[in-house]
């Protein structure tokens, strides 16, 4: 299992957003390069656990 840091970058893309709650909130369905198995917050950073990348 690898831990991935969610941050600004150019490596992945976000799918089309869909409107929610009178257009105030948007959900972007992100295709991660591997199945997302967990999210942890470590020292204030959000880390996405995804298996099978390496």
């Amino acid at each position: 299992m690898k831990r991935l840091l969610l941050a600004v970058g150019v490596a992945a893309w976000a799918g089309a957003a869909q409107n929610a709650q009178a257009a105030e909130w948007r959900v972007s369905h992100v295709d991660a390069p591997a199945r997302v198995s967990g999210i942890e917050t470590v020292a204030g950073e959000t880390q996405v656990n995804a298996g099978g990348l390496w």
């Binding site: 690898k2 831990r3 991935l4 840091l5 969610l6 941050a7 600004v8 970058g9 150019v10 490596a11 992945a12 893309w13 976000a14 972007s28 992100v30 991660a32 390069p33 470590v42 880390q47 996405v48 995804a50 990348l53 390496w54």
Partner: peptide, 17 residues
């Protein structure tokens, strides 16, 4: 941090806890 309309992710290998 996220900026703008486009969401992008960087995948970084992080040291084990």
């Amino acid at each position: 941090m996220l900026t703008g309309e486009r969401i992008s992710l960087t995948f970084v290998d992080v040291a084990a806890q």
